[in-house]
Design a protein around this nucleic acid. Structure first.
Length: 835
DNA sequence: GCAAGGTC
């Protein structure tokens, strides 16, 4: 037997580092093998993978979409090949000499498969080395040491269950994706995809849109009265008992409503019939798993994608635990008092932490999901200072800290007061609620804890009716799913995983299946769902995952084999293709029609064709005639954002309004033809003399708007004189009375009508442009230092370093503190390079 | 260039 090192393999570098620290008593040292971190101590090495380092795919001869019939993919061979070459190479190098290998990947099904993949790579270069498996659900001293003291074996059945999933997903996904794309002739970037998870997710969105389309609003009325006691007024609502004896507030008949309102209006007083008081306990929330974390972050205004990317950054920086988890129960190892203790000295959290520590007993809440994968998301106890994080990241970090606080805080208590009164024979009710004990709301302000006031009244008491009203309303269609609701629903349906659900939604955006936020399906999405429902129902049904889960469990229990399950799945797909291939042309036409409809803005005013949104070779959008090159009619679109066609149409031109999606800078452009006409009519506003040709030829400087929507200060003698100065794209340009003494030009202010943004005093356009150029030069100057690129120069500027002299003077430790991913040694390197 | 699942 070799006397080489013992090799420990984890799922990711971060876990490798922490496990090495625990097992070595912090004595492990990092070295690089093939550019991969390896932690080394005694006779041991620990390497972290990057999740799957091998992937499944078809052999290269199946790569060409046009040469291979999609149906052939069903029985095509599927092979594994390395996807992370450097890690695979490093692993092989270490495994060759190892005397023992320990697989320490995550404790879940995918972790077992990743472990088996590592096992196979090890076996390729070392046939005899013993391979053990350790399992722990949180990386703590106790769990890790215990796991390593009691090693187990790899569960090959569980790994095979995961492999079955990989194969089925690839075969179904690739065959159907290629079929749909080929039938609609969408090859290249705009292919049409379907899959086991994206399919049902898309159907969920499309089904909701169908409900909205089919919705027929109904009129109803609601009646209200303001009641007064001791000059304190509160609102009560009319109700009656319906046929089933249930309380109802909505009056569905207009005449009935009118009659009731006449009666109510005549009432001068109302007599209290009943008063009911109840105290309700409001328990603190459970610890965060990924889904609940995303939900909470989206309630403070961030997308699911952004929530996860910020969580990732906070995790890698060491401030919060692993963000991808299903678990909502803290591990036993977590000592809430100890963790709270880490916050007592902090400016933001100290006071709350102290209060919580004053509780006699601290028993954290627990949710319904107890899993082995990772602990719930909580702060690690290593605290960032505010300057270490961006404002957004701080907000998310604070949320995670406060959620942890909430889970160890006391319950809140509400007092509900329900008053029923009689006004002229009509029943009125009022519900008040008061927070009598704030409990966890004191440390977790993200839930609504607003009170509604109803005064203390007694039965039989007479109240004055001060005001009455009747509201005509309509029933509303169901609301579209927001991103976090979608993720919650996917979790309930059992599709996707904690680590992929938000990516799936992003994928639907990338495929042009959904637009805007909350997501709205395109015509293409409807057509894809319709075609799937007709010919491949399983791919848009949650049943496919349910069946697969059952099969995987059978494999994991040893009751079925990988081959049984994948073979059966291939047979089902064969059947699907029989129907599909017969109707290929029809399906393709339908998809193509929908693709066209998604781009169409209206009819061309100069020919019989449609006007469609197109993309220029440079990547900008414009509107062009579908009859091109016979008809060359075009209309410009703003250069910021991606155009979204709205349902609203221009009354004058019959064209759809267009909205430009650009994150927070999203705005409605309106009718593109109206906009183009406005731009043509707008007269150039002269603000001064042209510095280039004013004296000689009398050229003047004017504020101009180009047809593309962009604006500039340019010479009126253009194109004879091309003097120009840039102006910002967004905001309204205001010419002030102030004048620049140096250039005899008025100062300019930019205001933002449709946002809360403060006006920008741009000043004299010439001075402004010079300053801008000077900044560019500064940036270039920093970039002249070896090791500093454009991005780093930007970061340096954020840290207050504008030029080389200030870089040289900077204190390396202080500067490194201000910059993400930069250490003091790097700063010293720059400083010596600048000499 | 297809899926879904890891991780960054």
């Amino acid at each position: 037997m070799s006397n080489g090192p013992e090799l420990i393999i984890t799922e990711k570098d971060n876990a490798a580092r922490r496990i090495a620290d625990i097992l070595s008593g912090e004595s492990a040292e990092a070295e690089r093998v093939n550019g991969v971190n390896v932690y080394k101590w005694g006779g041991k090495r620990c390497i972290g993978l990057s999740g799957h380092v091998v992937g499944v795919d078809f052999p290269p001869e199946y790569n060409d979409w046009r040469d291979v019939e999609p149906v052939e993919l069903i029985d095509a061979p599927v092979a594994k090949h390395p996807t992370q070459e450097n890690i695979v190479a490093a692993l092989r190098r270490l495994a060759r000499r190892a005397r023992r290998v320990v697989i320490a990947t995550d404790y879940d099904r995918e972790g077992e498969l990743i472990g088996k993949e590592a096992y196979e790579l090890v076996r390729e270069v070392n046939e005899d080395v013993p391979v053990d498996r350790v399992r722990f659900s949180s990386i703590t001293q106790r769990e890790v040491t215990e796991a390593f003291e009691n090693p187990d074996e790899l569960d090959f059945d569980l790994a095979a269950a995961g492999e079955a999933r990989q194969i089925i997903d690839l075969v179904w996904g690739a065959a159907l994706t290629r079929f749909l794309s080929l039938s609609a002739r969408q090859l290249g970037d705009d292919f049409i995809s379907v899959g086991r998870v994206q399919g049902p997710t898309l159907k969920l969105i499309v089904d909701r849109e169908r409900e909205i389309d089919a919705f027929d609003p109904e009129d109803y009325w609601e009646l209200f009265a303001d009641l007064e006691k001791d000059s304190e007024s509160f609102e009560a609502q009319y109700f009656y008992l319906d046929e089933d004896g249930n309380e109802a507030e909505r009056v569905w008949d207009g005449d009935d409503a009118e009659t009731a309102y006449e009666t109510l209006r005549e009432a001068e007083t109302a007599t209290v019939d009943s008063v009911r008081r109840r105290t309700r306990t409001d328990d603190p929330p459970a610890p965060f798993n990924t889904t609940q974390f995303i939900r909470a972050v989206s309630s403070i205004g961030y997308s699911a994608q952004r929530a996860m990317s910020m969580a990732e950054d906070l995790y890698t920086a060491g401030y919060i635990t692993y963000p991808r988890t299903d678990n909502t129960v803290y591990p036993e190892d977590l000592d809430p008092r100890e963790l709270l203790g880490e916050f007592t000295a902090n400016r933001t959290f100290g006071e709350d932490a102290e209060h919580l520590l004053e509780q006699e007993e601290i028993e954290p809440t627990a949710g319904d999901n107890e899993t082995t994968d990772h602990p719930p998301i909580h702060p690690t106890g290593e605290l960032p200072s505010r300057a270490d994080l961006t404002e957004d990241e701080w907000e998310v970090y604070e949320l995670v800290v406060r959620r942890f606080f909430a889970t160890v805080a006391e319950s809140a208590e509400w007092e509900h007061l329900r008053v029923v009164a009689d006004a002229n024979g009509l029943s009125l009710k009022a519900n008040g609620k008061r927070l009598v004990k704030a409990g966890y709301h004191d440390v977790y302000p993200y839930f609504n804890s607003s009170e509604s006031f109803v005064p203390d009244v007694d039965e039989g008491e007479e109240l004055v009716v001060t005001e009455t009203s009747i509201d005509a309303k309509q029933t509303q269609p169901p609301r579209r799913y927001g991103q976090s609701r979608l993720i919650e629903t996917m979790e309930q349906m059992g599709i996707g995983t904690k680590a992929t659900r938000h990516d799936v939604i992003q994928k639907l955006y990338d495929r042009n299946y959904i637009e805007s936020d909350p997501p709205r399906p395109t015509r293409l999405a409807r057509a894809v769902v319709e075609a799937s429902e007709e010919f491949a129902e399983l791919i848009v049904s949650e049943e496919m995952t349910a069946q697969l889960e059952a099969d995987m469990q059978a494999i994991a229990r040893g009751e079925a084999t990988l081959d049984d399950v994948t073979e059966e799945s291939r047979e089902i797909l064969e059947d699907v293709f029989e129907g599909l291939m017969e109707s290929g042309d029809e399906v393709g036409k339908h998809l193509q029609k929908s693709l066209k409809a998604d781009k169409t803005v209206g009819s061309c005013p100069e020919s019989d064709h449609d006007l469609v949104i197109r993309k220029s070779r440079r990547g900008s959008y414009f509107i062009g005639c579908d009859g091109y090159p016979d008809c060359t009619y075009t209309l410009p679109l703003p250069s910021t954002g991606k155009p979204l066609i709205l349902e609203e149409e221009c009354e004058e031109h019959g064209l759809s309004h267009v909205k430009m999606l650009a994150g927070r800078k999203t705005f409605v452009h309106g009718c593109p033809l109206c906009k183009a006409e406005e731009a043509d009519e707008e007269e150039d506003l002269v603000i001064g003399t042209c510095p280039d040709c004013g004296e000689e030829h009398g050229g003047e400087l004017a504020i101009k708007r180009l047809r593309s929507g962009s604006r500039l200060v340019g010479c009126t003698r253009y194109p004879d004189c091309d003097y120009s100065l840039p102006l910002p794209r967004r905001g309204d340009i205001e010419v002030t009375d102030e004048e620049c003494e140096e250039h005899d030009l008025p100062e300019i202010r930019i205001t933002y009508e449709d946002s809360d943004r403060e006006p920008w005093e741009l000043g004299c356009p010439i001075c402004n442009y010079r300053e801008y150029q000077a900044e560019q030069v500064d940036g270039d100057e920093l970039q002249s230092v070896k090791g500093i690129g454009a991005k780093t120069a930007e970061k340096l500027k954020d840290a207050g370093i504008d030029d080389v002299p200030s870089l040289k003077e900077a204190e390396p430790d202080a500067l490194a503190d201000l910059m993400d991913g930069v250490g003091p040694d790097t700063v010293r390197k720059w400083q010596s390079a600048a000499d």
